[in-house]
């Protein structure tokens, strides 16, 4: 029964996002559809129903040559321009972004699709965790087992907490909140990304800016609280003397490795999530490409495409968890290394 419901749901969900882009003239611009879905936008397109577009027009906030400007993105739709700002067209350097009349880019902190998604998931995370904390404040844990939201969240939070304890050691309590936060944030956004309709569907953890910030948080946590032993290991490691003087070969490698850690964290999460999204979208697009080859091919390919889509969606659920787990575990290991005491 559950499997049947799952299939129906997956079919509906999979066909939803692309339905809007299915062709007025039969030809489907696959790259545009895919990159439109994984990229950022000034509006949040929800659906087309009966030729009528349903979309959330998000506010544009920019600081251009004439100072701050804030207005609805509705004014810039369909090639419109407002107060000298317009959205760069195809072929321009900043394609799809708000630019000044001369094509230069203003300082842009618009609430885009990704930012709104970020706000929604941030609020959701706040509500979930604070409700869980409230349960613990209102109940005596020594007298009753966790119930409701606490029963759901406790294993997740404690899994990260235990991970911190194992990888960091002594003062793991200081770092456990950050690791919990990172894990839940990534996990929540990964799953929100898999949900194909509003308020999910934004490709937040598949956006390099988001993963970069996450990785930088880890980087600063590691390097600001690193102890003497950690810095000694980087600048004067225990290797034969000719490897560190007069040419500081090992120190250079160590510094490089410390700088590459956040880069690897950034790319791993970003690339995994982006690839997953692109794969699922491509599989769904197969249906729309096949539309012009007749009903037989369309029908059979649709079945194949949906089956593969379901498979990919399930795989993505797994990847959503694994990537959140890997990011958190690597962060905790890096922190643990920076807090390690010298061996006597």
């Amino acid at each position: 029964m559950m499997r049947v419901i799952g299939f129906i749901l997956a079919f509906v969900l999979l066909s939803f996002p692309c339905a809007a882009d299915a062709g007025e003239n039969g030809d489907v611009d696959v790259p545009e559809i895919i990159f439109g879905h994984v990229g950022d936008a000034y509006e949040w397109h929800i659906a087309d129903i009966g030729g009528k577009e349903i979309a959330v027009r998000l506010p544009v906030i920019v600081h251009g040559k004439d100072g701050w400007a804030a207005f609805s993105s509705r004014r810039l739709m369909h090639g419109g321009s407002y107060r000298g700002f317009r959205i760069a067209g195809p072929g321009e350097k900043y394609e799809g972004k708000v630019v000044e009349a001369d094509g230069s880019r203003p300082f842009d902190i618009s609430v885009t699709k990704n930012v709104l998604s970020l706000m929604i998931s941030g609020a959701l995370l706040l509500v979930i965790v604070l409700l869980t904390a409230r349960w613990y404040r209102r109940h005596d844990v020594l007298k009753e087992p966790p119930g409701g939201i606490a029963a759901l969240m406790e294993p997740v939070v404690m899994m990260v907490h235990e991970m911190a304890r194992e990888n960091i050691g002594e003062d793991y309590r200081r770092y456990s909140p950050y690791l919990c936060m990172a894990f839940l944030f990534i996990l929540l956004n990964n799953f929100m990304g898999i949900i194909p309709f509003f308020p999910g569907g934004a490709n937040l953890t598949g956006n390099i800016a988001v993963t970069l910030v996450l990785a930088l948080f880890t980087f600063f946590t590691v390097n600001l609280f690193g102890n003497r032993h950690y810095y000694k290991d980087i600048l004067w490691p225990d290797v034969p003397i000719f490897l560190k003087a007069p040419l500081p070969i090992m120190p250079v490698i160590e510094v490089f490795s410390a700088l590459m850690k956040p880069v690897s964290l950034t790319i791993r999460l970003f690339a995994n999530m982006l690839a997953g999204h692109i794969l699922i979208l491509s599989l769904v697009c197969v249906i729309f490409i096949m539309a012009k080859y007749g009903p037989a091919l369309l029908g059979s390919m649709s079945v194949v495409s949906v089956l593969f889509g379901v498979f990919m969606d399930m795989l993505e659920c797994l990847v959503a968890f694994i990537q959140a787990y890997v990011f958190t575990m690597l962060s905790s290991i890096y922190i643990g290394l920076s807090r390690q005491k010298a061996e006597e």
Binding site: N114, L118, N207, A209
Partner: peptide
């Protein structure tokens, strides 16, 4: 993107 970095 700078804006997303800021918001993030």
């Amino acid at each position: 993107d700078a804006g997303l970095l800021f918001w993030m």
